[in-house]
Design a binder for these strands. Structure first.
Lengths: 188, 188
DNA sequence: TTTATAGCGTGATATATATCACAGCAAAAT
DNA sequence: ATTTTGCTGTGATATATATCACGCTATAAA
């Protein structure tokens, strides 16, 4: 299970065995059952999570109790409430498991430590953050440009694998559409 | 004009004079007149731009010729088509000047060079990227959560200064609302 | 087994927002 | 000085999407 994250990092920067051991020693593995919470609103957010196995949703509950999904995260994805994590403030998002899930946890302190210690690691996280930024920009453009049906079709192309594992209700909530409207799309 | 960017960087990492000179030498200043383009769709994107003075919009033109604004950028902001810039692909966004504008240009090559040379600089850009990521997440949540009027009110709170300098038509396009609908909000 | 509960589809209706059309006005261009 | 262009407001109407309501099915809980 540590091989996977090594691969994940080495897709961007090569590491010696020693370097990798050093990095890995700053992560702690953790397991969650379906329906358990990695993060709950109004609590502090101790970790960024890298998903080894399983599937989670990060979402905001509005005043009417409606859920708005910020992101899904499955194998090889990172997830947390980044606003709260980076600023050490209380979460406004919840992160909960759609399946039994195993993660590697990285505290902000440890993240900054391995970044400071190993320039390569700082480089890795910069690249990751840049890529994340770009993909959020794409999502924003899709919300501005496209109607509900088009957004759904884009989702199908971009995340065909998620479709298998995530109920349509939640995909609707990720896309900013009601489940009924989404359902009428899928039926043709 | 170089003092401003030094301050901008030193809000995150302190630099010696030598270090700053080294960094600055990788930027090139450039001036644009109102209506000129920093970036045009379907061209390669040679630079990331840091705005010294002025105001620009980064936007996508859809098939019907409608503009969707990705971001505004005024003094002390960064702007480019990041997807195209980071991946060295052709732009899908345009960036054009709403006012006469002065910028500092940073090529991807130079960015990577100063990041590789100075760990501090890589740290700076990582922090910047993280902050950008978080603010895009906020915008996405606002698009999912809030109706047009609420988004407009949030915009007023978040960017009161932009309201003075940007026509409402463009704010509407940033918020994903028609200018007519936005106009009906402002009138009460 | 029986009973909940979650997911999904679908009709009828309501509503937010877009679109179309027109006018007024200020600033820029000729 | 006159014309053009960009920005804004506002009415009338159209449309995409939300909401409400119901039933069906499969899985999970009692």
């Amino acid at each position: 299970m540590s091989k996977e994250i090594r691969q994940h990092i080495e897709r961007i920067v090569p590491l010696t065995d020693n370097e990798f051991d050093f990095v890995l020693s700053h992560f702690t593995p953790k397991k969650f059952k379906k329906h358990q919470f990695l993060i709950q609103e109004s609590n502090y957010v101790p970790h960024d999570f890298w998903v080894i196995k399983g599937l989670v949703k990060a979402y905001h509950s509005d005043i009417d109790g409606k859920e708005h999904i910020m992101q899904f995260a499955m194998e090889d994805w990172w997830v947390t409430d980044y606003q709260a994590y980076f600023n050490q403030t209380k979460a406004t998002l919840n992160v909960s498991c759609l399946e039994d899930t195993e993660v590697l946890c990285l505290s902000l302190e440890n993240r900054d430590k391995i970044c400071a210690e190993l320039h390569k690691v700082e480089h890795f996280f910069r690249k990751k953050s840049n890529a994340g930024f770009v993909s959020l920009q794409r999502r924003i453009l899709s919300l501005l440009n496209s109607n509900a049906r088009e957004r759904y079709e884009q989702f199908l192309v971009q995340y065909p694998n998620l479709l298998q594992r995530v109920p349509k209700t939640l995909i609707a909530s990720y896309l900013g559409v009601s489940r009924e409207t989404l359902s009428r799309f899928s039926s043709l």
